[in-house]
């Protein structure tokens, strides 16, 4: 509980430093802002309520960046080639993720991965629109799911 709040406090302090562009002349205002933000986060999101595995964070961020760059590049090439490059289709899959944050994260992040876009999430079934049915997107979506499971600390 206390270490988690200290970490948040440190995070808000860094955020203030960034927003103030490195100036420290208004430090007292920053101190008030950091204290208020820490208090608000403790009330709105108690440390015990969510269990993100921080160790998994850098790996997930790297995976996300790599794939969203690839996704942007791929769709840009398709746009240059016109609609003849597309072979859209619909993919339906069963999510093996706990309800709540994990499923919402999965649904949102898929929209920035190469070739996929969430259309509807109903319970544990997710319907996707894919730009090209010829690509092996199911495997990529599976890898994203594994990463999110690791991030939320569920199963192997």
């Amino acid at each position: 509980m206390i270490p988690s709040l200290l970490l948040r406090c440190l995070l808000f302090a860094v955020l203030w430093w960034v927003l103030a562009e490195g100036r420290i002349d208004g430090w007292w205002l920053g101190a008030i802002a950091v204290a208020t933000a820490t208090w608000a986060s403790a009330v709105l999101l108690p440390p015990a309520a969510h269990r993100l595995r921080l160790v998994q964070m850098p790996g997930f961020v790297w995976f996300f960046l790599r794939n969203s760059i690839r996704g942007g590049f791929q769709v840009a090439m398709m746009a240059l080639r016109g609609r003849s490059a597309l072979q859209p289709g619909v993919l339906e899959l069963q999510l093996n993720l706990p309800a709540g944050g994990a499923r919402v994260l999965m649904t949102s992040v898929i929209g920035l991965m190469p070739g996929t876009l969430s259309v509807e999430l109903a319970e544990d079934r997710l319907r996707l629109h894919v730009l090209d049915v010829r690509l092996s997107l199911a495997a990529e979506v599976g890898e994203l799911e594994t990463r999110i499971r690791a991030l939320f600390g569920v199963g192997p």
Partner: peptide, 27 residues
């Protein structure tokens, strides 16, 4: 530019979403 091109050339709202969400953010 590619995002806008996708918006103009792709056939339906779903594919246009792909173009805007992915290409514009990379830009």
């Amino acid at each position: 530019f590619a995002g806008t091109l996708g918006l103009l050339r792709f056939p339906d709202v779903y594919s246009r979403l792909h173009a805007l969400a992915k290409a514009d953010n990379l830009g």
